[in-house]
């Protein structure tokens, strides 16, 4: 079934970046972009326009064209909780003309249902970032540290929130609850905004979510960051401990990278590996992604593929253990 062969052309119209507006100094500093076998490269995401991965890709291609000589088009293939976008890419040619923006969603979508194609039909190419996943509470609430939160959940009953059901955040909260041996209700919501309201009005003790979804409240000092599930402390919050620092071995890596159809040639992958490293070092891009609290976490193809496989194994195990899937 390949009905979506034609790209989101009209949508892409505004996204076609053929290269004006690069300042002269940037041109002088940057080496010439590497030749690429395709004039147009389609980047597929399951996000709708304006959603998480869509915003990530749009910022990325603005800088990427300095390093790869091609025109990048973003195609939003929504629906089926992400399954449809996986099919779109898996059915594409494995020649580097089509790539997919990976996030844990593509693992979850593959595992939750019998989908025509799964993450196994895609070849992880490179990883670029780890999102900052945080535990936050309202600034004028009773919780000043993670210890307070755990203490309440030990002595009484905690009320914790995650942005979505069947998500990495939910999984992290459940594992923290298990490791800390506490009594907490873990309530899933319909997205980060819904969760934020219930944290702000005191319905929940804490929320677990991406930093990007909380930036408005962080800026207005309405919420306090208590901890991060990331493997290391966040550069923008050096005083905030990781959950691991607090003695609970729960680590969550919300990866953001690229994947292609199975069987991509090595020379194409090599171009992307090189370009990924160069774009991550680009000072303009650095400013943009640091502002979004994205943590650069470059992984080459030979490291990324096993990483995804292991991530999928862990997720499968978690979902099976809890009976979410059989």
């Amino acid at each position: 079934m390949d009905m979506n062969r034609r790209s989101f052309g009209g949508l892409a119209l505004g996204a076609v970046l053929s290269g004006p507006a690069i300042s002269a100094s940037a041109l002088a500093a940057a080496p010439a972009p590497v030749a690429y076998p395709h004039r147009v490269v389609t980047l597929v995401t399951h996000s709708s326009p304006g959603g998480g991965s869509d915003v990530f890709l749009r910022e990325l291609i603005r800088h990427l064209r300095k390093y790869i000589n091609a025109t990048f088009i973003i195609e939003n293939v929504t629906g089926g909780s992400g399954a449809r976008s996986i099919t779109r890419v898996a059915a594409g040619k494995p020649d580097g003309s089509i790539l997919y923006a990976t996030t844990p969603t593509y693992i979850y979508a593959s595992l939750m249902s019998r989908t025509p194609h799964t993450f196994r039909d895609l070849e992880p190419v490179v990883n670029l970032f780890t999102d900052s996943e945080i535990v936050y509470t309202r600034a004028d609430g009773p919780f000043r540290t993670m210890k307070d939160v755990i203490y309440k959940a030990k002595t009484a009953r905690g009320r914790w929130g995650a942005a979505n059901p069947a998500s990495l955040e939910r999984q992290a909260a459940e594992e923290l609850k298990r490791q800390a041996k506490v009594n907490a209700a873990i309530v899933s919501h319909e997205g980060g905004g819904d969760l934020m309201i219930n944290v702000l009005n005191g319905t929940l003790d804490i929320g677990v979510g991406e930093i990007a979804e909380t930036r408005a409240q962080l800026q207005g000092n309405k919420i306090r960051v208590l901890a991060t599930f990331n493997p290391a402390r966040l550069p923008s919050f050096p005083d905030v401990p990781t959950i691991k620092d607090l003695g609970y071995p729960v680590v969550m890596e919300k990866f953001r990278g690229l994947a292609g159809p199975k069987g991509m040639p090595a020379n194409i992958i090599a171009i992307w590996e090189q370009a990924a490293q160069r774009v991550l070092a680009d000072p303009d891009y650095k400013r943009a992604y640091e502002n979004e609290a994205l943590i650069p976490n470059y992984m080459a193809h030979d490291r990324y593929a096993p990483f995804i496989a292991k991530f999928a194994d862990n997720t499968t195990q978690f979902l099976k253990q809890n009976g979410v899937i059989r």
Partner: peptide, 20 residues
């Protein structure tokens, strides 16, 4: 579709088209 609280699939008969 996907259960809003627990995230399990309900009445989707295994197809991804009904997940949402």
């Amino acid at each position: 579709g996907t259960d809003p609280v627990d995230g399990v699939s309900r009445f989707t008969f295994g197809t991804a088209d009904l997940l949402d």
